[in-house]
Write a protein that binds this DNA or RNA. Structure first.
Lengths: 118, 118
DNA sequence: ATAATAGTTGAACAATCGCTCAACTGTTAT
DNA sequence: ATAACAGTTGAGCGATTGTTCAACTATTAT
């Protein structure tokens, strides 16, 4: 029996099933990209930040007080969110105001909370 | 000026904003639970496994061949998914067949891929 | 009985993550 | 100018994560 893959440690049991799946399967980059998006929602702090911003525009200090962590911690998380274009910021004097980038993020949050209430 | 929180290192700049948010804010457990759900989607391997199972019921070996990793790695990930009730399994002889638990998971995947194509 | 295969499990390891701390920039007030 | 404050950044840390490896159970075939 043939080994279907270099790194896998077993034989293909249902070759037809595997072939069908392989045919439709999105490429690795798509999985990686999508998992990186979900990663942003996979931490309570970031989730809380996004929830807060979905309600109202806030500056870094507001968020820090609300979450009970340092400005630095908030800023680090905001940077990750910014890199994935989930939030954007506007500087006004000494303050930097953050808000959600678009309604898609808001929708993902809403769906999530609706599901978790089921 | 008063320090609004023990662990935070700054003063409340917009107390009204913070108060409003605090009022509506889901409790920490909800954020934690929801982030744990998203965590399952936050890894390329698990994402691929769920995508595959959204197409067809598969045994562990099928998945291992399809992903090009060991049965053990697949099994570990399936355990995490099982614990959150995202997949369920049926033993048949030597094989254990996995499928998605419900259409909600399928929908989350679909939404994700649709968004990542934008 | 024995061997072979499917799958699970726990230990171990490298890699990644989230936070704190300290140092820094930039803006405002004195 | 100087001080105070908002925010960012990078190093460092403890904790978590994903994988491999080896040992194990359970089922099937010889």
């Amino acid at each position: 029996m043939k080994q279907a893959n270099d790194t896998c440690d077993c034989n293909a049991i249902h070759e037809d099933v595997i072939a069908r799946a392989k045919n439709m399967m999105p490429d690795n980059d798509q999985f990686r990209t999508l998992s990186n998006l979900y990663k942003m929602f996979a931490d309570p702090t970031r989730l809380k930040i996004m929830w807060a911003l979905s309600k109202e525009r806030m500056c870094v200090c507001d968020l820090a007080v609300l979450m009970g962590i340092t400005k630095s911690a908030v800023s680090h998380q905001l940077k990750s969110l910014r890199l994935l274009n989930l939030v954007h910021n506007e500087k006004e004097g000494k303050n930097v105001y953050y808000s959600l980038s678009d309604n898609h993020v808001r929708e993902m949050l809403k769906n999530g909370f609706e599901h978790s209430e089921e």
